[in-house]
Amino acid sequence: NQASVVANQLIPINTALTLAMMRSEVVTPVGIPAEDIPRLVSMQVNRAVPLGTTLMPDMVKGYA
């Protein structure tokens, strides 16, 4: 099963992502692949992401 990127904390809108904000977890539906975590660092979210939410490509500016 593919691990996805999950929010490790509440991430406010327009926040630049850091490693501490993300974790890898096997979830359904599948979100951004966990191997993309290094690429996500310093990218901004375009909405508030609650703790435990799977990051989807449309939630991260410049990812999709």
Rank of each mutant, 00 (worst) to 15 (best):
Asn1Trp: 10
Asn1Ser: 15
Asn1Ala: 15
Gln2Ala: 11
Gln2Phe: 11
Gln2Gly: 15
Ala3Leu: 11
Ala3Cys: 04
Ser4Lys: 02
Ser4Trp: 02
Ser4Pro: 01
Val5Tyr: 01
Val6Met: 09
Ala7His: 01
Ala7Tyr: 01
Asn8Cys: 04
Asn8Ile: 12
Gln9Thr: 15
Gln9Ile: 13
Gln9Cys: 04
Gln9Met: 13
Gln9Glu: 15
Gln9Arg: 13
Gln9Ala: 15
Leu10Tyr: 08
Leu10Thr: 13
Leu10Asp: 15
Ile11Phe: 02
Ile11Asn: 01
Ile11Cys: 03
Pro12Gln: 15
Pro12Lys: 14
Pro12Trp: 11
Pro12Cys: 11
Ile13Tyr: 15
Ile13Gly: 10
Asn14Arg: 09
Asn14Cys: 08
Thr15Trp: 14
Thr15Cys: 04
Thr15Gly: 05
Ala16Ile: 12
Ala16Leu: 13
Ala16Asn: 08
Leu17Ser: 00
Leu17Cys: 02
Leu17Asp: 01
Thr18Ser: 09
Thr18Phe: 04
Leu19Trp: 14
Leu19Pro: 04
Leu19Arg: 07
Leu19Tyr: 15
Leu19Gln: 05
Ala20Cys: 13
Met21Pro: 00
Met21Arg: 04
Met21Gln: 04
Met21Tyr: 05
Met21Thr: 04
Met22Tyr: 02
Met22Asn: 00
Met22Pro: 00
Met22Ile: 09
Arg23Met: 13
Arg23Pro: 01
Arg23Ser: 12
Arg23Val: 05
Arg23Cys: 04
Ser24Pro: 10
Ser24Tyr: 09
Ser24Val: 09
Glu25Thr: 09
Glu25Ala: 06
Val26Cys: 09
Val26Asn: 10
Val27Glu: 02
Val27His: 03
Val27Ser: 08
Val27Met: 10
Val27Asp: 02
Val27Ala: 09
Thr28Gln: 09
Thr28Gly: 06
Pro29His: 14
Pro29Leu: 07
Val30Gly: 07
Val30Gln: 09
Val30Glu: 15
Val30Asp: 13
Gly31Lys: 01
Gly31Glu: 01
Gly31Pro: 01
Gly31Arg: 02
Ile32Arg: 00
Ile32Cys: 03
Ile32Leu: 05
Pro33Ala: 08
Ala34Ile: 11
Ala34Cys: 05
Glu35Tyr: 06
Glu35Arg: 03
Glu35Met: 04
Asp36Thr: 12
Asp36Leu: 10
Asp36Lys: 04
Asp36Trp: 06
Ile37Met: 14
Ile37Gln: 09
Ile37Tyr: 02
Ile37Pro: 01
Ile37Phe: 03
Pro38Lys: 12
Pro38Glu: 06
Arg39Ile: 13
Arg39Ser: 07
Arg39Gln: 05
Leu40Thr: 02
Leu40Pro: 00
Leu40Asn: 01
Leu40Cys: 03
Val41Asp: 03
Val41Lys: 11
Ser42Lys: 09
Ser42Thr: 14
Ser42Gly: 15
Ser42Val: 05
Met43Thr: 07
Met43Trp: 12
Met43Ile: 04
Met43Ser: 10
Gln44Trp: 13
Gln44Met: 13
Gln44Cys: 09
Val45Asn: 03
Val45Glu: 00
Val45Ser: 10
Val45Asp: 01
Asn46Phe: 14
Asn46Glu: 08
Arg47Val: 12
Arg47Met: 11
Ala48Pro: 06
Ala48Val: 08
Ala48Glu: 14
Ala48Phe: 06
Val49Asn: 01
Val49Ser: 02
Val49Cys: 03
Val49Ala: 06
Pro50Ile: 05
Leu51His: 13
Leu51Cys: 06
Gly52Lys: 07
Gly52Ser: 12
Gly52Gln: 05
Gly52Trp: 07
Thr53Phe: 13
Thr53Gln: 10
Thr53Asn: 12
Thr53Ile: 10
Thr53Leu: 10
Thr53Gly: 13
Thr53Asp: 08
Thr54Trp: 02
Thr54Leu: 08
Leu55Thr: 00
Met56Gln: 11
Pro57Lys: 09
Pro57His: 09
Pro57Leu: 06
Pro57Gln: 10
Asp58Ser: 12
Asp58Arg: 07
Asp58Ala: 05
Asp58Gly: 08
Met59Pro: 01
Met59Gln: 08
Met59Asn: 05
Met59Trp: 09
Met59Ser: 06
Met59His: 12
Val60Asn: 01
Val60Lys: 01
Lys61Phe: 08
Lys61Cys: 15
Lys61Arg: 15
Gly62Lys: 08
Gly62Thr: 06
Tyr63Phe: 14
Tyr63Met: 05
Tyr63Asn: 04
Tyr63Asp: 03
Tyr63Arg: 03
Ala64Phe: 03
Ala64Arg: 11
Ala64Tyr: 03
Ala64Cys: 09
Ala64Glu: 07
